[in-house]
Nucleic acid binder design. Structure first.
Length: 414
RNA sequence: CGGGGUGUCGUAUACCGGUAGUACGUCUGCUUUGGGAGCAGAUAGACGGAGUUCAAUUCUCCGCACCCCGACCA
């Protein structure tokens, strides 16, 4: 993409009504546009990041036998009344049509997915079954906060699994956990798995995937020598207390929940009438689990966790572009031709390149480049023209490598 | 939902009970061109309503919006 045609522009200053680092940087760099408290639109750059996160998630969910579907977000009220959610889920947005028919906006999809699964899984032979989707969620939060981290509309991956036994569910939970850890690692984050309360959602314990960041809204204690980690809401432990697993002193920190898993038991199958026939021909309710992962929140947490004083720093896997090609001499026709050729060559071979071909000074381009956070910056300048030496700057480390055009084509051209 | 705060050109800010100023942006022209250029000119603004007052962007009240703390958090 030629930056001269990118309709969003960077801003020197953050809007005064955003204090959260993620919102400040995402708005300054033109990734998102705020609509109202807790609701953002995603512009070309932001949309590309979301799409890349989704790609990583799809790959891992597909690898553990998840089948992707796309459920309605405008929900009938009936299943919500059957499950009890209509009166008990306080974040549920309820709407009434002009003919006074009642609807809900999806804030989670148990009420929708359970009847769907039930329709197509009448036999124990159809189980286990895992269905997931990536889509918008709506929650009537009393207070939206922290930029994209807690909104009233957001994008989430939600998966639901159905099993014939608790053992089968427990085993699948472990599989999902590994997939989650992999996804977060690919996004440049270290996620800790904590025990937490199930809230009003489930009587049973739940698991949360937490990333340490001051922008979070949970306090966790964790052990640095083993993998023990817990939300303080269930342990009452604090900094320095002995780890229950290996006895070493616990650390305490603020973290953001980027994923969770709930053991739902048979609540929804019972409420919504999902039974299957077992080997003896008897009706049984499946064990159900759900697995959430906030995609827009994940994007915000990556910004919070990896950004530096100059701007955003994306990991390669989810960056909006792989390369930021910057022509530092836009008024030199030789440089323009050289950069144009690089851009054409690289894009023709599938490299995602943002090409700063704008007629502005180099300093402004570099400042913008730092703010945008594309992992590698390729600079066309005097050296490139004179000695066929291109500067490749790593955004995260600042390290500079020099490539000839031929070497660069080898690295990116295949 | 309780508490606190803030609303001024597109953005960030200043001042003020009496003519709203600056910077960035945008537009025009000239110069400049590897770390957010310079000069000249132009563009564009007081959240809404009520009240006090000769006069309100400024003071008061109500509403709305946004931010922060708390509560809440499928």
């Amino acid at each position: 993409m030629r930056q001269s045609r990118l309709f969003t522009k960077t801003r020197r200053e953050a809007p005064r009504d955003e204090l959260a680092k993620n919102a400040q940087l995402l708005i300054r760099a033109g990734y998102v546009h705020k609509e109202m408290a807790g609701v953002y639109s995603y512009l070309p750059l932001g949309r590309r990041v979301l799409e890349n996160i989704e790609k990583v998630i799809r790959r891992e969910m597909d690898a553990i036998s998840g089948q992707e579907i796309r459920m309605a977000t405008l929900h009938p009220s009936e299943p919500w009344k059957q499950s009890g959610g209509w009166d008990n889920v306080d974040v549920l947005f309820k709407i009434e049509s002009r003919t006074e028919k009642e609807y809900a906006l999806g804030q989670s999809e148990e009420e929708i997915v359970t009847p769907i699964a039930g329709e197509y899984a009448p036999s124990y032979k159809d189980l286990p079954l895992a269905l997931y989707q990536i889509g918008q969620k709506y929650r009537d939060e009393l207070r939206a906060k922290s930029g994209v981290l807690r909104g009233r509309e957001f994008t989430m991956k939600d998966m639901y699994s159905f099993h014939t036994s608790q053992e089968d569910f427990d085993a699948y939970y472990e599989v999902v956990k590994e997939a989650y850890i992999k996804i977060f690692a690919e996004c440049g984050l270290v996620a800790k798995v904590t025990e937490a309360s199930g809230g009003s959602f489930s009587e049973k314990i739940s698991y949360e995937f937490m990333v340490l960041t001051d922008a979070g809204e949970d306090t966790i204690v964790y052990c640095e020598t083993c993998n023990y980690c817990s939300n303080v809401e269930v342990t009452n432990a604090k900094e320095g207390d002995p780890c229950p697993k290996d006895g070493s002193a616990l650390k305490q920190g603020i973290a953001s929940e980027v994923g969770n898993v709930f053991d739902l038991g048979q609540k929804y199958p019972k409420a919504l009438g999902f039974t299957y026939k077992d080997e003896e021909g008897n009706d049984q309710y499946p064990i159900m689990g759900c697995y959430g992962m906030g995609i827009t929140r994940l994007m915000g947490v990556v910004v919070e966790a990896l950004a530096d004083e100059k701007g955003i720093v994306w990991p390669e896997s989810i960056a909006p572009f792989a390369l930021h090609l910057v022509n530092a001499m836009p008024n030199d026709s030789e440089a323009v031709q050289y950069a144009d050729e690089l851009y054409d060559y690289l894009t023709a071979r599938g490299t995602a390149v943002l090409y700063d071909d704008r007629d502005v000074r180099a300093g402004e381009k570099f400042a913008d480049s730092d703010l945008l956070g594309i992992p590698n910056r390729l600079v066309v300048g005097k050296e490139a023209l004179a000695g066929n030496s291109l500067e490749l700057v790593n955004r995260a480390t600042g390290e500079v490598e020099r490539y000839t055009r031929e070497e660069l084509f080898q690295r990116y051209g295949t």
